[in-house]
Simulated scan of single mutants.
Amino acid sequence: MRSKKRSLQTLARLLEIPQDIILDLPRITMLGNKQLLVENHKGIIEYTPTTVRVKLNQGELIVHGTNLTLGNLQAEQILVEGTVGVVRYDV
């Protein structure tokens, strides 16, 4: 499995294709501590005003904060808004 992953990474570099597309990785973008955009997710596990847990291909993303809301909900991306305090990626 690791050999296949390395081969895909090499192919992505050679073809100048982003690795997140080839390896089915999430793309996580933060704007300060006010917004967090998660692309290429597999769904929402938990949502409260203080915690958002998002299922990823490998593991989950856990966001802790205050006044957290889900903005732009689409099949491929989630926008978490509020005051983000901690972002943790659990594999």
Rank of each mutant, 00 (worst) to 15 (best):
M1E: 08
R2I: 10
R2D: 08
R2A: 05
K4C: 07
Q9D: 09
L11T: 05
L11M: 12
A12Q: 11
R13A: 15
L14A: 14
L15I: 02
L15G: 11
E16L: 13
E16H: 15
P18N: 11
P18M: 08
I21W: 06
I22W: 01
L23Q: 14
L23A: 12
L23T: 11
D24I: 02
L25Q: 14
P26D: 06
P26V: 04
R27K: 15
I28W: 06
I28Q: 06
M30K: 10
M30Q: 14
G32T: 08
G32E: 13
K34R: 15
K34W: 00
K34Y: 05
Q35M: 11
L36I: 13
L37D: 06
V38N: 04
V38L: 08
E39A: 12
E39G: 13
E39K: 15
N40K: 13
N40V: 02
K42A: 04
K42M: 06
I44S: 05
I44D: 03
I44Q: 01
E46T: 15
E46Q: 15
Y47H: 12
Y47Q: 08
T48C: 10
T50S: 14
T50K: 11
T51R: 07
T51H: 05
R53T: 07
V54H: 00
V54Q: 00
V54Y: 00
K55P: 00
K55A: 12
K55N: 10
L56P: 00
N57T: 14
Q58I: 13
G59D: 02
G59T: 01
E60F: 03
L61P: 01
I62F: 00
I62A: 01
V63C: 01
H64K: 13
H64I: 01
H64R: 09
H64M: 04
G65E: 02
G65Y: 02
T66W: 01
N67Q: 15
N67G: 14
L68Y: 03
L68A: 03
T69M: 04
G71F: 06
G71M: 10
G71Q: 09
N72T: 12
N72V: 11
N72P: 02
N72F: 08
L73R: 12
L73W: 06
A75Y: 02
Q77A: 14
Q77E: 12
Q77L: 09
Q77H: 14
Q77Y: 13
V80E: 05
E81L: 12
G82L: 03
G82R: 04
G82V: 03
V84M: 04
V84P: 00
V84N: 00
G85R: 07
V86G: 03
V86C: 10
V86R: 15
V87S: 06
V87M: 09
V87H: 07
R88Q: 14
R88C: 04
V91W: 00
